[in-house]
Amino acid sequence: MGFKLLSKLLVYLTASIMAIASPLAFSVDSSGEYPTVSEIPVGEVRLYQIADGVWSHIATQSFDGAVYPSNGLIVRDGDELLLIDTAWGAKNTAALLAEIEKQIGLPVTRAVSTHFHDDRVGGVDVLRAAGVATYASPSTRRLAEVEGNEIPTHSLEGLSSSGDAVRFGPVELFYPGAAHSTDNLIVYVPSASVLYGGCAIYELSRTSAGNVADADLAEWPTSIERIQQHYPEAQFVIPGHGLPGGLDLLKHTTNVVKAHTNRSVVE
Rank of each mutant, 00 (worst) to 15 (best):
E150C: 03
A94Q: 14
S208V: 13
W55V: 02
Y68I: 11
T114D: 00
F63C: 05
L156W: 03
A200R: 03
A130C: 04
G2V: 08
R141F: 03
R46Y: 09
V194C: 01
V189E: 04
A90D: 15
A144Y: 05
G198T: 06
A200Q: 03
P190R: 11
H180G: 00
N262I: 11
T36Y: 14
S205P: 08
S137D: 01
A90T: 13
G89N: 04
D79Q: 10
S223F: 05
L83I: 10
E150T: 04
E147Q: 14
V37K: 11
P176L: 03
W55T: 02
T253P: 01
Q228E: 12
H154L: 11
L217Q: 06
L217K: 05
G2Y: 15
Y231T: 02
T86H: 00
F116E: 03
I224A: 04
G65N: 13
E219G: 08
S155A: 14
F116G: 04
S70R: 02
S62P: 08
P152F: 03
G123N: 05
I201T: 06
L82G: 01
G245I: 01
E157D: 14
Q235V: 10
G89Y: 05
A133R: 13
L81E: 00
G163F: 05
P35L: 07
F168S: 03
I104F: 07
G131L: 05
F63W: 08
P232K: 13
G163A: 06
E44I: 08
L143R: 10
I104N: 04
S70G: 04
S139C: 04
Q229H: 13
S70M: 05
S264H: 10
P138N: 07
F26I: 13
A95K: 11
E101S: 12
S162Q: 12
G169W: 04
A215N: 07
E203G: 08
G246F: 04
Y196M: 07
H230F: 12
L217M: 12
L82E: 03
I227H: 04
L5A: 15
I201P: 02
F116I: 05
G32S: 10
N149V: 09
N211E: 11
A111T: 07
S181W: 03
G53P: 04
V108H: 01
E101R: 13
A51S: 10
A179F: 04
T222M: 12
A130D: 06
E44C: 06
V121P: 05
S38V: 08
L13K: 15
G169A: 05
Y12W: 11
L127F: 06
V187D: 04
V37E: 15
F116V: 04
D29W: 14
G242H: 05
N184S: 03
E172P: 00
L24E: 12
V67G: 13
T114Y: 00
N184G: 02
S264E: 13
L156I: 10
G158I: 03
T140M: 00
S62T: 07
R167S: 11
K4Q: 07
E99N: 12
E101N: 14
A90V: 08
P138V: 09
D85Y: 01
